[in-house]
């Protein structure tokens, strides 16, 4: 790594309220993903604090972070991150393996979610057999499996054409309407425009914050 210390995030002071739909924008390398990983309890800050529901994440043990991710957070990635060896239903049900859910119940729930994202007839397909848009819908269904209050999406439309991108945005809007908190990274203005609030980053700092728009 050399001696140069990279401050991926520097002096970020951000409060995100319950039920907000926040878009994080900024050029490549500005720290958007790092911020999202922090919010998702995948990473911990070297300095500073991240309070999730008033609890300091830094004080939590690795297993407690896992439990937090399992219970409250849903992830959607730019590259979908589905497991190729599992079919659609199995991918959707993955978070339930680590929650406390009976396999039969998990399967029923996964099928319901597959139906919700319009993949009823694709349940036994593998990710390889699906289009990009369909794969991202599987990922969204998966992020909902444990019924999380917070959904973190890192460029969810980044690998999709604008039409399928809009379909995905419609789904996210639905989830927001259900009262979930959504933090989404994007660098497309028209995608960001669909959020309530846009936070723009540059060099690890918050450059601009629109605040919640009605």
């Amino acid at each position: 790594m050399g001696d140069a210390v990279v401050r991926a995030l520097d002096g970020v002071d951000l409060v995100i309220g319950k039920g907000e739909f926040v878009a994080v924008m900024g050029p490549s390398g500005s720290g958007k993903s790092t911020l999202l990983n922090l919010l998702g309890c995948l990473d911990r800050p070297d300095q500073g604090q991240y309070l999730l529901d008033g609890q300091d994440v830094a004080s939590l043990h690795d297993d407690e972070l896992s439990a937090l991710r399992s219970a409250r957070l849903g992830f959607i990635f730019q590259s979908f991150n589905l497991i190729q060896s599992l079919n659609v239903v199995q991918n959707i049900g993955l978070p339930l393996v680590y929650g406390d859910c009976d396999p039969a119940e998990a399967e029923a729930r996964s099928r319901k979610l597959a139906a919700r994202v319009g993949l009823t007839d694709r349940c036994s397909h593998r990710p390889m057999e699906l289009s990009g848009g369909q794969q991202q819908r599987v990922a969204i269904a998966r992020s909902l499996a444990n019924n999380p209050v917070i959904i973190l999406a890192d460029e969810p439309t980044g690998n999709l054409d604008s039409r399928t991108g809009n379909e995905i945005m419609a789904l996210l809007a639905e989830l927001h309407a259900e009262g979930r908190t959504i933090v989404m990274v994007t660098h497309e203005d028209d995608i960001a425009a669909k959020a309530q609030r846009v936070v723009t980053m540059r060099d690890g700092r918050v450059q601009h914050d629109t605040g919640v728009r009605s």
Binding site: G40, L42, D62, D63, S66, A67, R69, S70, A71, F75, N81, L82, I83, L94, P95, V97, Y98, G99, R142, N146
Partner: peptide, 13 residues
Amino acid sequence: IGIRRALGARRSD
């Protein structure tokens, strides 16, 4: 492994 961890798997899992 990364995906499973992000979705709530503990190290012991």
